[in-house]
Amino acid sequence: MEITINGSTTALPQDPRVSLLDFLREGLHLFGTKKGCDQGACGACTVLVDGERILSCLALAVQFEGRDVVTIEGLSAAGTAGGEGLHPLQQAFIGCDGFQCGYCTPGQICSAVGMVAEAKRGSPSHVTADLAAAVTLTRNEIQERMSGNLCRCGAHNGIIDAIQQVLSAEVLS
């Protein structure tokens, strides 16, 4: 019964009641992933599993045997050659004032990484006008697709700016 977290394989907890969120924080001391509501309403616990964004608070860790989990700590390490710097989205959040208290930020950034992957494969959203057309991540699309991540400081405009900045840099590079 093993799981891969940020590239390292580790044993799953014995107690099936342990959520993936509590396993990350209490079991592995990866405190980047935050516990906000613990009931699937706020998005602060968002992590990537096999590249898909999910809520770790509603996930029982035992269900994820053999899966590949990436948290904000893993994104940071993967974002730079030396494994020490910041992911481009982290840097953009700083540059665009994408947070005040920072509590929702790890979830916002993991969610944004998952969102970009969904859009690239053409997954539509509630505000996509044409289900058959290619997806363009307009501001309206980003707002809808990020609606599962709340920010009580109200930094949403900076968050969207940061995401758009990274998207435009990707297009240019």
């Binding site: 699937g40 998005g43 968002t46 898909e52 964004r53 999910i54 809520l55 509603l58 996930a59 969610s111 998952g114 969102m115 969904e118 539509p124 959203s125 509630h126 996509t128 289900l131 697709r145 609606s147 599962g148 991540n149």
Partner: peptide, 16 residues
């Protein structure tokens, strides 16, 4: 059916 699903929950929850 696509529209109804996309109107529900959040992307994270729909992924799960």
């Amino acid at each position: 059916l696509s529209r109804a699903i996309l109107a529900g929950a959040s992307a994270q929850i729909r992924n799960m």
